[in-house]
């Protein structure tokens, strides 16, 4: 039982962390809300005035917003699909009785530790370059026309890069979950004559449902604001083809200096992320009870 003394000590110990996070969250957020209601452009200092909801109307009705929103959803959705389907496959494979599992594991996890600017540039230049890239050579050596990834399929190129970065995360979490699957249950299922496919559908998949949910939620939070990969490869282009919400807001803020509409856009991103966060926090919170 905690005594009064330890309880006070506890509060004192938690206070700095809580205070700092509070300031870190509330002050900028309040400023974003304030700016979003102002006409404010850094190119015209001193000309701020109350804008009401004009920035939101401007940002939300801008055709670029719809494009960016769709791009964001396509990017998040595709990367989720690729990482979860392939990740399940990789995790199942690594959970087999194989030799050198630890080394395979090291190779699979490696991309996660590569900084985003490096992975993006290595993929763009060394692999996806239309003339000297390795993919171009692979395509032409089987008699196909090399693909000019960043000209013809820029979004697909970005999706592949980001999926490669996040595949290790999905694989590792699903593998961890698989390893906690009860061995006895598997044996019982086998004794009852369950084949590999029905074992997977009725035993493994239900067991993976929760970790898959966790992967979806956490990846979504990070993927909603993919930035560096777009910044160093396409710069949002060609046109708006790879501009996602994060990049659009960055452009409004630091390239056009339109603080008002960038803030409005930022709040839109915050709202979308919060809806997702709500579900994640509930799932994680349930775990705290145990």
């Amino acid at each position: 039982m905690a005594t009064q003394q330890t309880r006070t000590l506890g509060r004192v110990l938690i206070a700095p962390a809580v205070a700092l996070l509070f300031v870190w969250m509330i002050v900028p957020l309040a400023m974003t809300i304030y700016f979003s209601l102002q006409y404010k452009n850094l190119l015209n200092p001193g000309e701020e005035s109350f804008a009401g909801l004009d920035n939101f109307t401007y940002f939300l009705t801008d055709p670029a917003f719809i494009t960016a929103l769709i791009n964001t959803l396509v990017l998040v959705g595709s990367v989720l699909l690729i990482t979860i389907v392939l990740g399940t496959f990789v995790a199942l494979l690594m959970n087999m009785p194989i030799y050198g599992r630890n080394i395979v594991r090291l190779m699979v996890i490696a991309p996660f530790f590569v900084m985003p600017t490096v992975s993006a540039l290595v993929w763009k230049n060394l692999l996806m370059h239309p003339v000297s890239g390795l993919f171009a050579w692979l395509m032409s050596s089987v008699g196909l026309e090399p693909i000019d990834w960043f000209t013809n399929y820029p979004m697909l190129a970005v999706i592949l890069i980001v999926a490669w970065q996040w595949l290790p995360f999905a694989s590792l979490i699903l593998l961890t979950a698989l390893q906690s699957l009860d061995e006895e249950q598997k044996e019982a299922a086998e004794m009852d004559g369950a084949g590999a496919v029905s074992k997977f559908i009725y035993l493994t998949l239900p067991h993976l449902a929760r970790p898959i949910t966790v992967v979806i939620l956490i990846e979504t939070i990070f993927l909603l604001t993919v930035f560096a990969e777009i910044f160093v490869t396409t710069g949002g282009g060609p046109g708006l083809q790879t501009t996602n919400l994060a990049f659009l807001i960055y452009q409004a803020a630091l390239l056009q200096f339109d603080v008002g509409s960038a803030s409005a856009g930022g709040l839109v991103a915050v709202v979308i992320a919060n809806i997702l966060a709500f579900f994640l926090v509930r799932i994680v919170g349930r775990n705290l009870e145990a």
């Binding site: 400023m31 974003t32 604001t225 930035f227 930022g266 966060a277």
Partner: peptide, 16 residues
């Protein structure tokens, strides 16, 4: 505390 991590960085890019 966890929920503060969920806030997308772009949301506070301008003020920061």
């Amino acid at each position: 505390m966890l929920s503060t991590k969920m806030m997308p960085a772009v949301g506070v890019l301008v003020p920061i």
